[in-house]
Structure formats: structure tokens, C-alpha cells
Design a protein around this nucleic acid. Structure first.
Length: 492
RNA sequence: CUGGAUGUGGCGCAGUUGGUAGCGCACCUGGUUAGGGACCAGGAGGUCGAAGGUUCAAGUCCUUUCAUCCAGACCA
């Protein structure tokens, strides 16, 4: 009996959850709101990490590591920042356990109360800026560009595998610059690094843009974002890069002496992407047969399934497969031969499809005789029988083609789900149907909030590289003058 | 925190008017199978989220509590 996924149309959330579980990516942990990332899921994350890390280093950033615990007092320094995170912080108050005098197991030792509570980092701006203070004295020390790969904790009320867990893995870059221009340039550069990664590796068309003041990172002067559209038409913020101005420098008193001998506050940026990217990957490309992984991120790019009756057949097929595998690996591809002999081919086909492996090769006695192999591509589910001769080159090209096809499909989907809208009535009707709407906005937080209250829609971004529309118009809600259109959507 | 629901072998579920647990999948053994999620036979595994109560007897009734899920508010 086929172990089918819930159809997408019925309940997208349920479908997504089933997908994550059944594709063996992750599961809910026994710890509230946390997630266990399983080896196959983690392999995807590792691949993402490796690619991103190389890109960061190419911009001059260096990896570092800062503490998990942040003294509570650090949070009181930057008012806006604490307001943004205060409601979702885990706090360490004690440092010791003891046996319960009443015999009820182990309890917290009341004697071991911390003088000052420690906050489990929800993000590291505060502790990093407290550290940067000691690293920066002269203009010659700048810029400083550090990135750290770590976990952070945000005590969310409702959690969702990969998209919003209490603890998640991410990368956070924190840079310090001598001038505002340089910092703004850095923030801009990093959002483009993210967009490039999303588009070329995740096969995810994203919109680059500025966040509206309401949606900005707590403590930022400007937040740049990449916004992706999922298959249900909802928006997912996939990465952000912030221009923090001098807010943190002033809060933590980080100054340098410029080349004229004057004391100046430094300018800051921070940028990050998280395991949420995996959620984006899953929701953007998967179908009812399971995951569809872009070859650039698939832990296994090619799987080979032998079909046989007798041991001699199996030996002969496996030998052929090993030859192909070697050649493919020499070309830089990851290959797996599924030689498990307790499972039938049909079962293996279904299982590897569920896991999203881009290309599957099947070879049986018939192929052995005719010198052929069956090539199946995950994205279109097409199957062709081909001559073995030159098969490696064909697969090499096929992987590129799959990568492109997945992107094109997601791109076409988004293009048909974005439209201009100039009537409030129309807006209310269409926004819930899984679309991004390009609308005029008067630039005020009040209007944005009013629209959100009434429709749940938020300004996903003020686009800068696609859907840019800087024409005069009237705000869709208030009717006040507007200088251009922004992207509205319902977000995850 | 508000509203709704659910907690029974690893997973998904059933359990009638209370009479101390059953099914499917998965698992183990043996055999037959193998080009789209195999079949037969045998086998192992739970004391029903937790605590308390009613009763001769509780998965089933009552009270309390905890946890999870869904929808809100919040968020990457």
C-alpha cells in the first residue's frame, strides 16, 4: 500500500509537515518547540553552509564565535532592540541542581541563583558589539567583518518544522565600518550574495527589496530582504541584511579615531540566513511524490537501482553501476547505489522520489543485454531508456537542465501569481488567494498597520531589482499620494 | 495567553451499555518473489499521558494536572 502524502490542495501546512517527516529530514523533538534534524536533512544544510561560507569569505568576512549566553544588562542598552526580542527570550537564572529534600527527584538549588540572569542569544548583536568595543580604536582597525555559524533561541508561541522552531541554526554576520556609505554598501552586497545563492543554488526566484519600517529588524535603520513565494502563494522571508547605522555603536560606546584624530562612532551591519531556507526549499519545489531537490543542493544527486532475480545478475549489474558511479564521481557528482536486497525496485523508486534525488538510474537484466539504462528525472518524472555509451556526459548535462527547469518552474509560478492592484475591494478579494499584489502605498506605518489588521497582509518589501515600479499613484487604502508600488503578501 | 481538538506497542488507529487490551503499517525468522510501494507462514513488542477518586472490577465514569496538534496574537 502506497504511503501517500496528503494532497497539497487539502491542507498545505499538513502536507508540508508530512513531507518533512516522511522524507526523513527532521522531526519534532521532545523538547518544546525544538526540532531534531536528521542526517539526510542535515546533509542539505551542510551543503548550503559550505556554499554560503565560501561566498562570505570571498567578500572578506571571517568566521568567529561568540558566547551563547548574554548578560541581561546588555539587552537594556539598545531600547528598540530589546523591545523586538524581549517577549521571546529564554533566560538562565540558576546554575545548579540538587536532590529534592522531599524526595521528588531533582530540583533547582535556590542557593544557586545567578547574580545577573543570562539570556540565551536570540541574536548576537549585543554581545558582539560589547566585544567589538575592545577591538576597535583606530580607523586602521576597520572594517571588521565577522560571521558566526551557530544556534539561536527564540521562544516562539507556535512552531513549525524548519520555518519557526524555538531553537534554530543560522549564520549571522556582523560588520563594523568607518562610514555610513561603506556600511550601506556592505548591507547591499550581502543581500545580493543571498539572492544569488537563492536563485542559483536553491532554484528559488526571490525578490530583493527594502523592508518597510514596521517590518524592519529591531534596531535597524534599513533592512534588506529576499522574499520568496511558496507554492501556496504565501511569502517567506528567506534572508535579511541590515544597515544598523550607529545605534549599536552608540549603545555600546564603540568609537574609533579617524585619520584626522577625531573620535567617531562606527557604522554597523548584520546579515543572516537560517535553517528556514530548508523550509523554503521544501515548500517551493516539492510535489505530491515528495521532495524535489535542486541538483546543486541535493546530498545525493544520482541514485542507481539495480533490478535482478538471480545473484549472478545482481553481480553483473552492480559491476556496471560501479563503473558509471566512478566516472560520475570523477565529474564531481554524488552517487548512491541502492543495493539493498530486501526491498523491491518499486519501493526504492518511491522512496528516492520522496527524498527528492534529482536523477535515478535503473538497470535490469534487459538493460544488461541491450547495453542500456533507464534514466528518470525527479522534476518532470520523465523516464527514458538510453544507451550506456556516453551516459555520464548525458547525466552531467541533465543535472544542469534539472536545476534550470526547477528554477524556471518556480519563476513561472511566481510570475503568474504577482499582479498589480489598484482597488481596495479587489485587494481584499485577491490577497487571500495566494498572490503577491503590487500596490501603491503612502509610506506611512499607520496605513500599513491598518491593512494588516484588516487583511493579514504585510508589505513584503519595497522591491529594488524585480517588480520595481516607481510611478506616481494613490495609496490603495488611504488614497494619499504614493511614489511607487510595493509588494504585499500574506507571510509565513 | 484565547478558542477548538487529541493523548492507547516505533507510526497510524479501534476499543460498544465499565468485566484487567486489539487492528493496519513497520520490526524479527524462514521461504517464495523482484522493470513502480510483494506474498505466505511463524514471532517479538503496550497496561492505555500523569496523579487522585468512584467501583468487586476503570482504556472506558468523575476531578485535577501535563503534553501535543489546529486556528488566532507574535516572529527569521
Amino acid at each position: 500500500m502506497a504511503d501517500q502524502l496528503t494532497k497539497r490542495s487539502e491542507n498545505y501546512s499538513q502536507w508540508y509537515n508530512d513531507l518533512v517527516l516522511k522524507a526523513d529530514l527532521a522531526e519534532q523533538s521532545a523538547v518544546r518547540g525544538c526540532m531534531v534534524i536528521k542526517p539526510y536533512g542535515y546533509a542539505i544544510w551542510e551543503k548550503m553552509q559550505r556554499i554560503l561560507d565560501d561566498k562570505f569569505k570571498a567578500t572578506g568576512a571571517k568566521n568567529a564565535y561568540f558566547p551563547l549566553f548574554i548578560p541581561k544588562s546588555f539587552f537594556s542598552r539598545e531600547a528598540e532592540h530589546v523591545a523586538g526580542f524581549a517577549k521571546e527570550c529564554a533566560v538562565v537564572t540558576h546554575h545548579r541542581l540538587m536532590n529534592d529534600p522531599n524526595g521528588n527527584g531533582v530540583v533547582v538549588d535556590p542557593e544557586a541563583k545567578l547574580e545577573e540572569e543570562l539570556i540565551v542569544r536570540p541574536t548576537s548583536e549585543t554581545i558582539i558589539w560589547n566585544t567589538y568595543k575592545n577591538w576597535i580604536t583606530s580607523w586602521r582597525d576597520l572594517p571588521i567583518m565577522c560571521n558566526q555559524w551557530c544556534n539561536v533561541v527564540r521562544w516562539e508561541m507556535r512552531t513549525r518544522l524548519f520555518l519557526r522552531t524555538a531553537e534554530f541554526l543560522w549564520q549571522e554576520g556582523h560588520t563594523a565600518h568607518a562610514t555610513a556609505e561603506e556600511a550601506q554598501e556592505e548591507a547591499k552586497r550581502m543581500v545580493h550574495v543571498y539572492a544569488d545563492f537563492a536563485r542559483n543554488y536553491m532554484a528559488l526566484p526571490v525578490i530583493i527589496g527594502h523592508k518597510s519600517p514596521n517590518e524592519r529588524f529591531a534596531g535597524a535603520l534599513d533592512t534588506l530582504t529576499i522574499e520568496a513565494m511558496m507554492q501556496d502563494g504565501k511569502a517567506l522571508q528567506a534572508g535579511t541584511s541590515h544597515f544598523l547605522g550607529q545605534n549599536f555603536a552608540k549603545s555600546f560606546d564603540v568609537t574609533y579615531t579617524d585619520n584626522e584624530g577625531k573620535q567617531q562612532y562606527v557604522w554597523a551591519t548584520s546579515w543572516g540566513v537560517s535553517t528556514r531556507l530548508m523550509g523554503a526549499l521544501i515548500m517551493a519545489h516539492s510535489d505530491d511524490n515528495g521532495l524535489v531537490l535542486p541538483p546543486a543542493l541535493a546530498p545525493i544527486q544520482i541514485v542507481m537501482v539495480p533490478i535482478y532475480r538471480k545473484p549472478e545478475e545482481m553481480a553483473a549489474i552492480l559491476e556496471k553501476m560501479e563503473q558509471i558511479k566512478k566516472k560520475l564521481e570523477a565529474m564531481g557528482h554524488s552517487v548512491e547505489i541502492d543495493s539493498r536486497d530486501n526491498l523491491r525496485p518499486g519501493f526504492k523508486f518511491a522512496e528516492w522520489e520522496l527524498k527528492g534525488v534529482p536523477v535515478r538510474l535503473a538497470m535490469g537484466p534487459r538493460d544488461l543485454e541491450s547495453g542500456t539504462v533507464e534514466v528518470h528525472r525527479r522534476d518532470t518524472l520523465e523516464k527514458v531508456t538510453m544507451q550506456l555509451d556516453g551516459i555520464e556526459e548525458h547525466i552531467h548535462g541533465l543535472l544542469d537542465d534539472i536545476q534550470k527547469t526547477i528554477y524556471d518552474k518556480a519563476f513561472a509560478f511566481r510570475q503568474t501569481h504577482v499582479e498589480k492592484c489598484d482597488s481596495w475591494e479587489e485587494f481584499k478579494e485577491k490577497i487571500g488567494t495566494g498572490k503577491f499584489l503590487l500596490c501603491h502605498w503612502d509610506g506611512t506605518a499607520e496605513t500599513e498597520q491598518a491593512i494588516k489588521d484588516e487583511t493579514k497582509a504585510t508589505i513584503r518589501c519595497i522591491p529594488v531589482d524585480s517588480f520595481v515600479c516607481e510611478e506616481e499613484g494613490k495609496d490603495i487604502f488611504s488614497g494619499k499620494p504614493s511614489k511607487g508600488r510595493v509588494v504585499f503578501g500574506i507571510a509565513y
